[in-house]
Design a protein around this nucleic acid. Sequence first.
RNA 1: GGGCAGUUAGCUCAGCUGGUAGAGCUCGCGACUUACAUUCGCGCGGUCAUAGGUUCGAGUCCUAUACUGCCCACCA
Length: 786
Amino acid sequence: MAKFELFKGPYNPQIAEPAVLNFWGANAFFKPEYNAVKKVVDSTADLKKYLKGNPDRRYVIIDPPPNAYGRPHLGNISGYAYQDLLGRFWRMKGKRVLLFPGKDHAGIQGEIVVLRELFRPQGKSKQNMSRKQFYEETYEYFTKTMAAALQDEKRIGLSADYDRNVFTLDPEIVDNVLSTFVKLYEANKVYKGVRIVNWCPSCKTALADIDTKKKDRESTMCFLRYPLKDSVGSLEYITVATSRPETMLGDTAVVVNPDDKRYTKLHGKTLVLPLVNREVPIITDAQVDITVGTGCLKLTPAHAAEDYEIMLRWNKQHPKESVDWINVIDPEGNMCGPIGKYKGMSAEEAKNAVLADFKALGLYEKEETISQHAPVCERCETLIQPLMSSQWFVDVAEMRDKGLDAVKSGEIVIHPKYMTKKYNFWMKNLRDWPISRTLWWGYRFPVWYKGKLETTYGEDGKVLEKISGVVVTDFADAVTKKLAIVSKTSPGEGWLQDENVFDTWFSSGQWPYVTLEKEGLFDEMYPTDALDTSYDILEMWVSRMIMLGLFRTGKIPFKDVYLHGLIKGANGQKMSKSKGNVVELDDLVNEFGADAIRMLYIIGNKAGASYRIDNEKLAGNRNFLNKLWNASRYVFFAAQDLEKPWELAEKDLPFTEEDQKMLTEARDMAKRVEKKIKNFQFGLVAVDLVQSFWHSFCDSYIEQVKNRLYTKDKEGNPINTSEEAIASRRAGQWTLWHILGIYLKLFHPYIPFITEYLWESYPKSPEESGTIMYAKWPEEGKELKQ
RNA sequence: GGGCAGUUAGCUCAGCUGGUAGAGCUCGCGACUUACAUUCGCGCGGUCAUAGGUUCGAGUCCUAUACUGCCCACCA
């Protein structure tokens, strides 16, 4: 047992917190194997035996894995506070608790970071090193940075089982994630095909919709005239508007609204696309807005997602008049396809050339400056170029419906409730999920080709794939021709592995079960009890875990989802380096201590609500901790001559009204705190808990009871010497002792350091736990035998 | 354009299933009381965004409106 000194003066977390960390670190309290009854560490086999068939005996949270390459930010760390609060509470309720820590390789972002931080300073790039070398050096680098990230988790008091810290690219995890892909493939839920994708020209990879964001920008709207092949009455051309004139080279139709009276007589007519002299039809789609622009939409299915959708819809309804797509911009950002002299130009050059040529032909009507929300890459903020590409997709239809049902039925509960609507909305509108990324850092696809796979953008504007020179129409065709296979290991000599890696969310989406399976705890600990994360990754991460969890295990991954708010800077704005309002954990810890920061994270906050780092609040929290410190020291001192208080029977003590009132209040607090933690409303009840301790217990009760505790007056004369006074004094001492115990326990999930530190000096029976982590939560009728 | 939150004391926010407004900070006054000045006591301060409605009674329910924030989106 450590020895914690009750030092004089104000509470100093710089002394107490490191001492407590050492104490915890020297014991196995954070492990679910820790047996608090016998005070030994059970074997994992014994733990599993104990839990088998008794899911109520454990409480499991898989901690969201932060990026492995750096230190977690204050938002990640706030999550640890919530997860830890739940873990500590249930531990005190007698459950075997596992808080499972991990680290994420962070896909695109991870690759960007190592290229910039690790390789560029050494003069290395993907051009001058092998993929193997890149992977190995990055892995080694991440192994080092990961250790630093772990320090912060520990420092904030997260009682996670650090022996089990798992990395997303640990071999066992990789194998399991790959197995999921294979199973999806076997179940016909993953396919490779040429579809329109969000292409990031900088990262040179496809992105899912959710991996993009919108950015405001100024743009020029150009109004272009497309001549009719045969004039209709006096009408010789129609006008279309576009902010990307170069894409007109890939137009395959012009669309009008079927109800637009102005264009009724043009339905089915033909236009001659200028510059390339290609004939394109005028088709209809209800999605075209009559009020926007000219009411005529140029259709470029290969370079605009909505155009692609219109094309699919039209073709489904009009198979005989079907419209095709022509890809005119390749992944390098150069013009390609059947476009004559523009071929080979950059998109920017082509834009200028197209405009000049329209002007020369007298077909340029006018231009307007507009502001628009353009999609950009979430990570590097480069403007997204939609284009046709051969990528792997997950067919989400069935998984999506099951995921919706799991929440609708109440099997999974989202806190706050209103976020359920956000989840439902997103899930209902979910399209097939592109999971291939053209990166080196991540899980390489378990897909093999018999020889070299070549993808080219042909003269006809089509994406052409060849394996060993043999043209394949799609992956299924390649499999039929025995040129491709899905396999976790190489099928043999001459087979080359797919270059793509999985979207990082494809692996994080499997986190709950791959982690537990790695530890051999899946049967006993899945589904997990709760998930805590910030609400902004509800769609990206939570929904994927639900879908993949249901697919792979047939069970939900967790029962409750607690979505915490985002941390803002002192000015109330989002914390970011460019705004200069980033606060470092070290500074806060040094000034206020981890407990005060945890209070800021938790107390007074509720699910989904964002809040800011507020030094005034932190100072208030520090003051509270000092209050708790001094009140405890006072109780220890005032009750020091009360021997073995735990052996005194409550019914034998002559309580005064003030004693009873205080006992009632503390016990009511215990009930309320328990109820609110179970409801995931631990933040608001904590305000009352602080109030109750500070004002009822400290300011009122202690001040009242003091008079009964004095044995000498100011002059040093003996007082309170009657038998009644002595008995009353004992009742007061016992009440102080008893109630402090309740509060220390109630506060422990919130502020674990100071409560652990004080707990050592707290007079307790030999049966009581030496660490407050395993002290019994105060319960009706049971809390008397502390 | 659609959706979701929010609009309560000077500031930051609580007010759960409806019954005549609360906390912290700030501010003013007072107190060196044998745990604590990182303290204690007292006090100032709100027609609960606006307009209607339901109700015996509404920050609390309903309907509009106006702002603020966030998310989504196909203005070519």
